[in-house]
């Protein structure tokens, strides 16, 4: 017993030291632009962009392989911020922007299993075991990771409702 613990500890310490030195001396310089873009992204690694997490998407955007608009939870404002940083123009599309989608819970079928709570990367879901859960809209990043967790399909993604404080005049329609 003692011998096993000692040998494993020593092995771990030696390997750890080797790895630590390797990290210091063989480190590959990351693209600072990628890091900068990654810092702008939501960081919930939801994968809706089709890349492996926010770091992957940031690398693809920096390499010019993905558009700044590829992040659905980030939405328009993120696209504009990234485009400004990269100095590129971004086509936001003339189509109606439904705004960010956020999770919503159908309280009549929620069974209070807390699976969505554990999956939520921003702690936006409120509730406890066998209690009806609820989503705090302001904190929901729209990553949709909770949707697949729900055993009763009580979770849906919905656009944020427009409130009086947020409404603004549409752009005047152009005359034909």
């Amino acid at each position: 017993m003692l011998a096993a613990i000692l040998s494993l500890t020593i092995l771990g310490a030696v390997l750890g030291t080797v790895l630590g030195f390797a990290n210091r001396f063989f480190q590959v310089e990351g693209n600072p632009l990628v890091e900068e873009i990654e810092a702008l992204m939501p960081g919930s690694n939801c994968g809706q962009c089709g890349f492996p997490g926010c770091a992957g998407a940031a690398a693809a955007i920096a390499a010019g392989q993905a558009s700044p608009t590829c992040c659905p939870p980030g939405g328009r404002s993120l696209a504009v911020t990234i485009a400004q940083r990269l100095g590129v123009s971004v086509e936001l599309g003339g189509a109606e922007d439904p705004g960010p989608l956020v999770a919503d819970i159908d309280e009549s079928i929620c069974i209070g299993c807390t699976r969505c709570i554990r999956a939520c990367p921003t702690d936006a879901i409120l509730g406890g075991p066998k209690q009806i859960h609820n989503v705090m809209r302001d904190s929901c990043s729209g990553c949709a990771q909770c949707i697949d967790q729900c055993p009763t399909e009580a979770m849906v993604m919905q656009p944020l409702p427009v409130t009086l404080q947020q409404w603004f005049w549409p752009k005047p329609a152009l005359r034909a």
């Binding site: 702008l40 939501p42 960081g43 404002s77 939520c120 990367p121 921003t122 702690d123 936006a124 990043s141």
Partner: peptide, 11 residues
């Protein structure tokens, strides 16, 4: 986005 980043990091 900033709030959400903070929350993600916190969690």
């Amino acid at each position: 986005n900033e709030t959400i980043r903070t929350l993600t990091r916190a969690k």
